[in-house]
Structure formats: C-alpha cells, structure tokens
C-alpha cells in the first residue's frame, strides 16, 4: 500500500522560470530513461524475485522513484509557471503547448509519449538486475546531459541530487546481483532461471 506524504524528498525552489530548460528536463518525467519508467520497471519486476533482499530493494527503490517523478514534475511546473505566449514562442515550445498547454505530460524531450516499451520485466532475476543496473546508468547519463544545459543553480542543485541517487541505486543493484549469484551454481549461473526454476539454489532451502 502507498500513503502519500505532502512533501518532496528533496526541496525544489526555482526562482526563475525557463520553459526551454523544462523541455529537456521533461525527458526525465516521461522519457525512455525517466523516473516514471524506473518506478514501473522496479515495481513490476519485484513480484517474482526469488530472494527477500531483491524484493525489498526493488520495492524500496521503486517507491523512491515515484518520489523522484514528483520532484521532476515540480521542476517542470516551476520552470513553466506564469509563462506568456511570448515566452512560449521565445523558448520554441509551441509544439508542446499546442497539445498540452502548460500541463505536465509524460513524454520525452523529443515528444515521444511515455511508453512501457522502454522498460523490461523479463522474469529472470539475473537478466532483470542487469536491466536495472543499465537503467540507473542511462538515467545518470541523462542527468549529466541535462547538467550541460542547465545554468540555474536552483535547478542544478536538484538535478545533482537526483543524479547521485542513480549512482547509489546502481550500487545497491550490484549488491543484489552478488547476493543472487552467491546462491547459484558457481560453475554455471545460467543453468537455470532463478525466478522460474525454483530448485536452482545451491542448498535448495531458499523457499522464503
């Protein structure tokens, strides 16, 4: 169950609107490597995970990603707040405006609507953990790319926080992979699918 808390994980207080910057940050809301995809990826994969450490990590990181989605939404809202038709034209975001006005819609910077095709839930813990490790790095690169174009310290501070979380999550997923492979046949990790072939664990007593 989820209970909403009426505050952000990390504060977002942007003083100067900048719709042009919002257009690229939008990718982390609804783009291929964005926070919505991250939350759905982890919260979908967790059900069939074979070990309690993996279920816990995916639940907790997936939940944190929902908080990050809210933070990115707050950045977008504050960067576009009070913009006039002139501002929209100057920022070159008429294409977004015509479809969504100033509403926040999950799509990539290039205008591709959010798609679950960008995430995977393969039903194999080794495969899914590699997907998750890659996903964290892809999000980290996207934040690095955003930082190249962001010159507002109010924005940069929040983006740096989000970027750092990707690095921490990568670390935790790496530990998950090690916890998993330590329990598998060291001669061939891939002899079985640890999510489907339940008897693949070394001592066959991990029915938790």
């Amino acid at each position: 169950m989820f209970v909403y808390e009426k505050k952000l994980q990390y504060p977002v207080n942007i003083k100067n609107p900048n719709p042009k910057l919002a257009k690229i940050i939008l990718s982390q809301f609804g783009g291929a490597d964005g926070e919505l995809g991250a939350a759905l990826r982890y919260l979908s994969q967790r059900y069939t995970m074979p070990l309690p450490e993996l279920k816990a990590t995916l639940t907790d990181i997936g939940t944190e990603e929902l908080g990050h989605l809210e933070m990115v939404g707050a950045i977008l809202y504050q960067l576009t707040k009070g913009m006039s038709e002139k501002d929209i034209k100057a920022a070159g975001i008429e294409d977004y405006f015509v479809d969504h006005t100033a509403g926040i819609y999950p799509q990539s910077a290039a205008g591709v609507p959010f798609t679950a095709a960008a995430i995977a839930s393969k039903g194999d813990a080794i495969t899914d953990l590699h997907e998750d490790l890659a996903a964290e790095q892809k999000a980290r690169t996207t934040y690095d790319n955003i930082l190249r174009f962001a010159d507002d310290p109010d924005v940069k501070d929040v983006i740096r926080f989000l970027r750092q979380r990707e690095v921490v999550h990568y670390q935790r997923f790496g530990e998950n992979l090690r916890i998993l492979t330590d329990k598998l046949n060291e001669k061939n990790f891939y002899a079985f699918n640890p999510e489907f072939d339940k008897k693949c664990f070394k001592n066959q007593m991990k029915k938790r």
């Binding site: 505050k7 952000l8 994980q9 990390y10 504060p11 207080n13 450490e53 816990a56 990590t57 907790d60 990181i61 944190e64 921490v168 935790r172 530990e175 998950n176 916890i179």
Partner: peptide
C-alpha cells in the same frame, strides 16, 4: 517553514538511505 522542511527532509533522507542499505546488509 522551508528551514523546518529541509531539516525534516534531511533526517527522512538519511533514514531512507540507511534502510535501502540494510536491504542488502540486513545484519
């Protein structure tokens, strides 16, 4: 309000990060 929110968030964040660490280091 911002000062108190920031303080609250700092503690919440430290706790959340430690909990995430405990998922892979439960002992």
């Amino acid at each position: 309000r911002e000062i108190l929110t920031k303080k609250l968030s700092s503690y919440q964040f430290a706790i959340a990060d430690m909990k995430l660490y405990l998922d892979t280091h439960p002992n």
